[in-house]
Amino acid sequence: MEGTNCEYEAFESFRRSGAKPEYVHIKQLEDRRKKLTDFDIIFFPGGFSAGDYVRAGAIFAARVKAASGRDISEFNDSHRPIIGVCNGFQVMVELGLLPGESRLEKRVTLTFNSSGRFECRKVFVRIATRNRMIGSAYVGRNAWEIPVAHSEGRIVLDYPESTFNYLSDGGNILFQYVDPEGNPAGYPWNPNGSYGNIAALSNSYGNSIGLMPHPERIYYAYQAAEKLEPAAGKQFFDAIVAYSKSL
């Protein structure tokens, strides 16, 4: 929809990993010209949907819910991948897809960065759980370089410790921000002040994922500062596409 703007690099990333991506505009869902259940993967790109002048992602989520709420539930129930990055992550939280359990609803929120400003920087993440889609894509390195660019990416929990433990035990914490050696660290390694350095969440089954960092911006090593092959983005999209094909 208007204001969504990371779709080009996401489209190319899927294409490079062997999928046949297609742009779907919210209006096409509303007009019933396209149907989400006809697809194998849903990807909510980043950006500033509707300008983010209200709560980030709220308007996008409301429109998606109205147009395709039932299709999304069906999609999720069939364990097909649903991915949201940055603003797309915020949309997925608004839609209740993440963390994905009714008893966790409204206990996880994305809000303004601790620094109080928009920040564009490269950070490191490490995988924090076993995920059936990601598999072993992120073994072999303690820290994976990945870009972030947002002003509302701080994850806050209602009861920080207990909710964090609950999420952690449930395998909902997918990536955490770390320093270059792979250790948990504060700002700027954790760019937004997220509780427990949470960078990405998944639902318990593992097919719905929301990330603040942008894997679609770092598919190739030459897009990275550290120039290491393979880059985090390729690992991500290859894994999602491979999982989707295995269904």
Partner: peptide, 23 residues
């Protein structure tokens, strides 16, 4: 200033305004 500008969107920025090791 430059940190508050998104300089990596579109994934085509190979060298942005800030460059070097991440830290």
């Amino acid at each position: 200033v430059t940190r508050t500008y998104d300089f990596t969107v579109r994934g085509s920025t190979i060298v942005g305004p800030l460059t070097g090791s991440i830290d």
